[in-house]
Computed example of a mutant assay.
Amino acid sequence: MLDDFELKQKVTLYQDFPKKGYHMRDLSGLLDDPKALQLITDTFVHRYLDAQLTRIVALKGRGTMFAAVLAYRLNLPLVVIRDLGEEPGEVLYERAPSAAGERTLEMRVGAVQSEDQVLLFDDILSSGATLLAAASLIRRQGAQIYEVATLIDLPDQGGSERLQEIDVSTYALMAFAQDQA
């Protein structure tokens, strides 16, 4: 895990956002600094360059921007898992219950194939609820998950352990303890 002080300094913590009791880690500072974006991308590229990946699957949101750059650099197709009602055509859907509220994800049927080796990408690994739902959508179509990659892991939230329980390994560039700004 890359725990680079300079990268961590570019992640801003907003307490009680979007509502009281929750905290948001804003990644805008990482996108605002071309050197930070280059370091992030190069680190992921180095990790996955020789992996036998066939596609990257990203959850819609802030991580999609980073996943798109990575897909470009690795010359891989990018699939985006979206929220319910956003994907046209025939879809599979999966509920992702969490303390922050329930979210339903959907993925187009045929977006991944049984022979695919997928890198599942998201911005932050917290409770793991959405990544567990995404993993289910991928596996229901017969594809294999090589690994879950995130920019940030919040290990106090237990998401990494939940993913390991279903035999999905994780990799994060940075980790923040619950009380760490």
Results as ranks from 00 to 15, higher is better:
residue 1 M to C: 01
residue 8 K to D: 01
residue 9 Q to R: 09
residue 9 Q to V: 09
residue 9 Q to D: 08
residue 9 Q to C: 12
residue 12 T to K: 06
residue 12 T to F: 03
residue 17 F to P: 02
residue 21 G to F: 06
residue 22 Y to R: 11
residue 23 H to C: 07
residue 25 R to C: 01
residue 27 L to H: 01
residue 27 L to V: 09
residue 28 S to D: 13
residue 31 L to Y: 06
residue 31 L to F: 13
residue 32 D to E: 15
residue 35 K to F: 02
residue 36 A to W: 03
residue 37 L to Q: 01
residue 38 Q to L: 11
residue 38 Q to C: 08
residue 39 L to D: 02
residue 40 I to D: 05
residue 40 I to G: 01
residue 41 T to I: 06
residue 42 D to T: 09
residue 42 D to Y: 06
residue 45 V to H: 00
residue 47 R to Y: 00
residue 47 R to L: 00
residue 47 R to N: 07
residue 48 Y to S: 03
residue 49 L to V: 05
residue 50 D to P: 15
residue 50 D to N: 15
residue 51 A to G: 05
residue 52 Q to I: 07
residue 53 L to Y: 08
residue 54 T to G: 12
residue 55 R to E: 15
residue 56 I to L: 12
residue 56 I to V: 12
residue 57 V to M: 10
residue 57 V to I: 15
residue 57 V to T: 09
residue 60 K to C: 00
residue 62 R to I: 11
residue 62 R to A: 13
residue 63 G to C: 04
residue 63 G to M: 00
residue 66 F to Q: 03
residue 67 A to W: 11
residue 67 A to S: 11
residue 68 A to H: 07
residue 69 V to M: 12
residue 69 V to A: 14
residue 71 A to S: 03
residue 71 A to Q: 02
residue 72 Y to K: 05
residue 74 L to K: 05
residue 76 L to H: 06
residue 77 P to Q: 14
residue 79 V to I: 11
residue 79 V to C: 01
residue 80 V to M: 09
residue 80 V to R: 01
residue 81 I to S: 06
residue 83 D to T: 13
residue 84 L to F: 15
residue 84 L to N: 13
residue 84 L to S: 13
residue 85 G to Y: 03
residue 88 P to A: 05
residue 89 G to P: 14
residue 89 G to I: 03
residue 90 E to I: 10
residue 90 E to G: 00
residue 92 L to W: 09
residue 95 R to W: 13
residue 98 S to Y: 04
residue 98 S to E: 02
residue 102 E to N: 08
residue 106 E to L: 14
residue 107 M to C: 10
residue 108 R to Q: 15
residue 109 V to I: 14
residue 109 V to R: 12
residue 110 G to S: 08
residue 111 A to V: 12
residue 112 V to L: 07
residue 114 S to R: 12
residue 115 E to P: 04
residue 115 E to T: 14
residue 115 E to A: 15
residue 116 D to S: 09
residue 116 D to A: 05
residue 117 Q to H: 09
residue 117 Q to M: 04
residue 119 L to V: 01
residue 120 L to R: 11
residue 121 F to E: 04
residue 124 I to F: 02
residue 126 S to A: 13
residue 127 S to G: 10
residue 130 T to H: 14
residue 130 T to W: 12
residue 130 T to S: 14
residue 132 L to G: 04
residue 132 L to R: 08
residue 134 A to C: 11
residue 134 A to I: 14
residue 134 A to Q: 15
residue 135 A to S: 11
residue 136 S to H: 08
residue 140 R to N: 15
residue 140 R to Q: 15
residue 141 Q to A: 07
residue 143 A to P: 02
residue 146 Y to I: 04
residue 147 E to P: 00
residue 147 E to Y: 01
residue 148 V to K: 08
residue 149 A to R: 01
residue 150 T to K: 00
residue 151 L to Q: 01
residue 152 I to E: 01
residue 152 I to R: 02
residue 152 I to N: 02
residue 152 I to M: 01
residue 153 D to P: 05
residue 154 L to K: 00
residue 155 P to K: 10
residue 157 Q to I: 08
residue 159 G to I: 01
residue 160 S to N: 06
residue 161 E to T: 00
residue 165 E to G: 12
residue 165 E to W: 05
residue 166 I to W: 04
residue 166 I to C: 03
residue 167 D to Y: 10
residue 170 T to Q: 06
residue 171 Y to S: 04
residue 172 A to H: 07
residue 174 M to E: 05
residue 178 Q to M: 04
residue 179 D to P: 02
residue 179 D to Q: 14
residue 181 A to C: 14
residue 181 A to F: 15
residue 181 A to H: 13
residue 181 A to P: 07
residue 181 A to W: 12
